[in-house]
Amino acid sequence: MTPPGGETGSVHSPAHAPHGAAGHSNEESYQPVLLGGVRDELNRILERYPTKMAALLPALWLVQDARGWVSEHSMAEVAQALELTPAYVKGVVTFYTMYHQHPVGRYFVQVCTTSPCMACGAEDTVAALLRHTGCGELGSTSPDGKFTVIEVECLGACGFATPIMINEEFVESVTPDKVSTILAQLR
């Protein structure tokens, strides 16, 4: 196992506003995402596809990269930009598990527990992560807003059980005894 920050650079916290800041936006305070550089990026993406709809997944990624999650306001904004209806966009958002429909912790920790990893002790790794982050249960965010731990289906790193993903970075071969060290590097 290579600790985070080793092989592929450090574990970044997402470059978005502090936790929850965009989480409670309402009609009056919603700030559009698809402006300036983000809009330019979307325009570049649109050139690749013969339809506007095809830019939907990339556009939602742009939103999540900027805001940390995809709010209903953002769905409506993306819908308008791509000439879709908000209901359509929501149907797509809810299909894909990686788009957060709620704000998540600063470090979003996904632990693979599918059978191959489970056979290698993934459940104990989950327990250790919940304990050390203070999340308490899967899907909830720790009281300090730093961590959200979820179970994830096969991360495609089965040979290096148990892989966990912290934001954009993989950490492989995580065993319960390594959890506190890994988390210490994030705090």
Binding site: E72, A76, T85, P86, A87, Y88, K90, G91, T94, F95
Partner: peptide
């Protein structure tokens, strides 16, 4: 109208 969520959690949804 849309189909929201997937698997047996799926429902017809709207915005």
């Amino acid at each position: 109208l849309n189909v929201s969520e997937r698997g047996d959690r799926a429902i017809i949804g709207k915005f």
